[in-house]
Write a protein that binds this DNA or RNA. Sequence first.
DNA 1: GGAATAGTGTCTTTCAGACACTATCTG
DNA 2: CAGATAGTGTCTGAAAGACACTATTCC
Lengths: 233, 233
Amino acid sequence: MANSALEKYPRPGVTVDLAILTVVGATAAIPELRVLIQDRTDPDGRALPGGFVRERTTVAQTTADVFRRKVGVEFGSEVHPRLLRLFDDPNRDSRSWVISAAHAISVREADLTSAHGDLVRVDHDGRLDGESPLQFDHDEIVADAVRELRSRYEFRHRYADTLPDPDGFLDEPFTLHQLRKVHEAVIGERLHKDNFNRRMKPLLDPVLLDGEPVLAESLRGRPAALYRRLTEA
Amino acid sequence: MANSALEKYPRPGVTVDLAILTVVGATAAIPELRVLIQDRTDPDGRALPGGFVRERTTVAQTTADVFRRKVGVEFGSEVHPRLLRLFDDPNRDSRSWVISAAHAISVREADLTSAHGDLVRVDHDGRLDGESPLQFDHDEIVADAVRELRSRYEFRHRYADTLPDPDGFLDEPFTLHQLRKVHEAVIGERLHKDNFNRRMKPLLDPVLLDGEPVLAESLRGRPAALYRRLTEA
DNA sequence: GGAATAGTGTCTTTCAGACACTATCTG
DNA sequence: CAGATAGTGTCTGAAAGACACTATTCC
């Protein structure tokens, strides 16, 4: 299989860097969008988890491997890394020629309880809360990841095929209020209650018991109906 | 600079494969969306132009290099390759471990007159006109490239920041009729004349001479006014 | 005049933005 | 009861879809 004519030139290391995004407190009053940042040695500093694509593996397999080994989290088939772009400046890593395939991944908070690293808040402009700059070009990756996520959670486009919390940060069943707070956390803006509910309702399935809607327990005020994502459009 | 600890593992070859898209006959009655296909040896077959990313170069530089050497076309700063995705199946090339960064690029027909290869028509579903399957996964790359291009030429989304022929297939000045035919060629659908014109006019600058609109020479019917793309929004 | 294309006007439908109002819970 | 939140109704404005009509050219 090896073909020496094809392999006589130097080859780059190919890494996968992961912006692992989550919403903490999805069912709480004020959910927050956060990204997983780790301490690294060699070189020392703060950075996103990442790792090299090894022989006979794919980018997707490398993603799962980084999760297992560097983040300490096992993952099943629900991992859907989204390629953001390539970082290919020959001098971006002073140690060697390395091309990074930057990816964003959305993970439920519950699946990150034992993860290595800190969940750092992301502000309105995709900047990290009180972090000095990350290693390499990882600040750019975070900004790209947040931009990509926000574009999919934005629902105020007429023909956009918006879905309720498409990445599943919020566990079912949920109230329309909780769903809206999660969307607000992701896009970093307040949304109109009535317009949001009107848009989302056709995409939701009310939870029924004996034909009657099941209600959430409320701390204050009238209890809200519970919904699940529609399985079929 | 070389760090042996980082370089002890096998590394993949990284290639750039290019779906070069153009609209032929942009000013003619029926413009057509086409993609550049080449004959290749080693292995023999039809494929997209592509090449390896060499040491101390970037993906963007490799793109320009493929244009010069494989397509035979010199390019300036107007080359804007758009990353589609990575093709990373370890067995996609039986000769060696190669990861391909698939890109789409839009080029004016006039800049492809001396290009090596054939401009092949793309049908409504992103399939090639009368081509047997291309090498590797290049049929998939073409379909992805067409999908990406169409999403940006689609103007019937309320909040979409559509622009008139954003990739510049059509030379200025042009008539609204020509502009619409180019958009129809790209997205593969007929568009309503009046709605299209109403949407595009605020984004266009009428060509004036002594305060009067300059008109195109018409073959039949009333001559149409000429426009340029607005320089500023 | 007739055919063909350019350009304008307008009606309808859809839907986001905004506001008002009613309903139902807790304390 | 008051306060808080859930849920409904409705008005307005923007823009797409669709159709009708007028204007200007070539034959």
